[in-house]
């Protein structure tokens, strides 16, 4: 019974991952992250992702503050924030977030404030979707680990 539950949870995880890949939310960089997880850092993926969430929320907040400011004109600073966001997103394999960042950066380089605002909204949306899905993934993972009573690295 226990073994069956573990298998089911594993299947759920894989299904979710497949969906996220199919949607283009994640790319192979996320798989590389999973491969980096080993005995020396058994929670590597969730650790990195939680760092990413924390950083990203800070960045999104900053971006929104910048754009909400009526006096706003510091596109360079915004570009750096976007670049930062793009770097961390691509590093965890958040493909769709990254593509939105590219568009965002293009808009900010053209000093296109409206374009920036649109991009920011899409970005926030994509980020939320990613966050929810990854949370879901980690929850299943956690259940799986508890069910199996043994922690072993994700097999990919």
């Amino acid at each position: 019974m226990l073994g069956w539950g573990v298998e089911r949870l594993r299947a759920d995880m894989n299904r979710l991952l497949a969906l996220l890949f199919h949607q283009g939310v994640l790319d192979e960089q996320f798989l590389q992250l999973q491969q980096l997880q080993d005995e020396s850092s058994p929670n590597f993926v969730s650790e990195v992702v939680s760092i990413y969430f924390r950083e990203s929320e800070k960045l999104l907040r900053n971006l929104r503050e910048l754009l909400m400011d009526k006096e706003f004109s510091d596109y360079k600073k915004m570009g750096m924030h976007v670049n930062h966001f793009m770097g961390s997103s691509s590093s965890i394999g958040a493909k769709r977030v990254r593509s939105v960042c590219v568009a965002f950066r293009a808009a900010s380089e053209q000093n296109n404030r409206a374009g920036c605002l649109r991009a920011l909204e899409v970005l926030e949306h994509e980020y939320c979707y990613l966050k929810n899905k990854l949370h879901e993934l980690f929850q299943i993972e956690q259940q799986r680990v508890m069910a199996s009573g043994v922690r072993y690295p994700i097999q990919n």
């Binding site: 992250l33 980096l36 020396s40 650790e47 990195v48 760092i51 950083e55 961390s88 590093s91």
Partner: peptide, 16 residues
């Protein structure tokens, strides 16, 4: 790197 996400990933990769 000021990006701690990247920093952590790079660290792990380099250790690998």
């Amino acid at each position: 790197d000021d990006d701690t996400t990247c920093l952590r990933i790079l660290e792990q990769m380099l250790r690998k």
